[in-house]
Design a protein around this nucleic acid. Structure first.
Length: 421
RNA sequence: GGUGAGGUGGCUGAGUGGUCGAAAGCAGCGCUUUGCUAAAGCGCCGUACUCCAAAAGGGUACCGAGGGUUCGAAUCCCUCCCUCACCGCCA
């Protein structure tokens, strides 16, 4: 959520920065400012009336105490109450409306991002490893040949967009998860969390999935609880509504959870195999920091995610996303894309973002700074990494046509063998 | 699911209709004194919104949340949420 003061003070530059995103927010900003003006006006009037009413009520108290008659004043105050009722209701309504509108405004892209309307304008800022030649066998073929997964039966029990790992394939997924969590906790200092995957609506608003993207989410109980589309939601909200002490920042959490996404509107895109699914596992990295720490923490978070791909010998590139391609709540994002030879394409396996105080404002997450002032925290997160696409790249990179899957050395102790098949 | 007890400021904890935003203690901050790895005394010490060009200073709201009663609610009534204890059921 943006600071309403920023909108009041410099609406023009807010609009200009939002204009670099896809979508048009100019009218929404005007609407918010109009609402804000009306809200403040009615609030001020209510407050003046209440002040007067409070004053008279106290006078009545004094009269009663001394045994004098107060019926005249009482009648007067009663008149006040009626007048206030409508005004008070209006002020409350306008306040809710303003928040509601404000929740629909995305974060401002950080200054200095590459400008562009869509992914075309993203900038590759780093390449690691040498993308291998195309593999005629893709992960579906390899997985079925080696007996690692069964997409047909997954569809039978759940529909399309689900995977059923079997035998060695299930064991491999488990080995990957343990490898990833151990890496992030032991080598990179994250605290492991095992959160619920069903959360309240407020959490989804806090991180920015709601109210805008409700149709992409699995909701229950009339929209009061949701399956999390990413552990970002549950984990970032752990400290919602809290005031942290500066000394405990930065906080670094990691969690592996199933993620649930309707993927509404993506039908037909990348639907073969396990590129895009309704349920998948993901290791998430989350940081809560001071504003000063955030920029450096984004770099290290991205490096923490990259380490996964390096240790698994999977070539990848890092993209800096342009203004039109960063997520709704993000102000700056690096995408990690792993090379998948069976696809002949790069696959996004991690999206590392700095949200500024945008999420913190939504979830009222603050810390007490050195001067004793309450400040909004900054939040960051990134995948470390998504499991299915990592799995895809692993299979397609480390399997020769017709051959076994050769496990990268760091993964071998977790799986308990050097190869599969 | 049943029964019972509760939810007050960073924490502990008073307060059952009237100057209560809320006693007291602890923690924190400032000053003073004595001195030494601390003690004592004094003062300050919630949040949000809003008025004012700003500061200073006003005002309003907030005692789990939302409604209600009343001239006036932390205090009374209703609904909901949550916590704890015991019972039942259960992976």
């Amino acid at each position: 959520m943006l600071d309403i003061r920023l909108l009041r003070e410099d609406a023009a530059s807010v609009k200009a920065r939002l204009a670099t995103r896809s979508g048009n927010y100019s009218d929404l900003i005007d609407q918010i400012l109009a609402c804000d003006a009306r809200r403040r006006e009615s609030e001020t009037r209510v407050q003046h009336l209440r002040a007067e009413k409070n004053r008279l009520s106290k006078e009545i108290g004094g009269l009663k105490k001394s045994g004098s008659d107060s019926s005249e004043l009482e009648a007067q105050v009663k008149g006040f109450s009626n007048e206030m009722e409508d005004l008070g209701r209006l002020a409350t309504e306008l306040d809710a409306e303003q928040r509601n509108l404000l929740l629909q405004v995305p974060n401002l892209p950080a200054p200095g991002l590459p400008e562009g309307r869509d992914a075309e304008a993203n900038v590759a800022i780093k390449h690691w490893g040498e993308p291998g030649p195309a593999n005629p066998e893709d992960h579906v073929a390899i997985g079925e040949r080696l007996g690692l997964l069964d997409l047909e039966r997954a569809a039978k029990i759940s529909g399309s967009g689900y995977v059923l790992f079997t035998g060695a394939g299930a064991r491999l997924e488990r080995a990957l998860i343990n490898f990833l969590l151990d890496l992030q906790t032991r080598s990179h200092g994250y605290t492991e969390i095992a959160p619920p995957v069903l959360v309240r609506r407020e959490c989804m608003e806090g991180t920015g999935q709601l109210p805008k993207f409700e149709e992409d989410m699995y909701g229950f109980d009339g929209g009061n609880s949701f399956l999390t589309p990413t552990a970002e939601v549950s984990v970032t909200n752990i400290r919602r509504d809290e005031i942290l002490s500066e000394s405990e920042l930065p906080l670094k959490y990691t969690a592996c959870t199933p993620c649930f996404r309707r993927e509404a509107g993506s039908a037909g895109r990348e639907t073969r195999g396990m590129i895009r699914m309704h349920q998948f596992d993901k290791v998430e990295l989350v940081k809560i920091t001071t504003p000063e720490q955030a920029a450096a923490e984004l770099e290290s978070l991205t490096a923490d995610a990259e380490k996964v791909l390096q240790l698994l010998s999977l070539p990848y590139r890092v993209l800096e996303l342009c203004t039109g391609d960063i997520g709704f709540s993000s102000q700056r994002t690096y995408d990690l894309e792993v090379w998948a030879p069976g696809q002949g394409a790069y696959l996004e396996v991690s999206s590392c973002s700095h949200f500024g105080d945008y999420q913190a404002r939504r979830m009222n997450l603050r810390y007490k700074d050195a001067n004793g002032k309450n400040q909004f925290c900054h939040t960051l997160n990134g995948s470390g990494t998504a499991l299915p696409r990592l799995y895809v790249a692993l299979l397609e990179t480390h399997t020769k046509p017709g051959g076994p899957l050769i496990l990268p050395e760091p993964l071998q102790p977790y799986y308990g063998a050097a190869q599969i098949g």
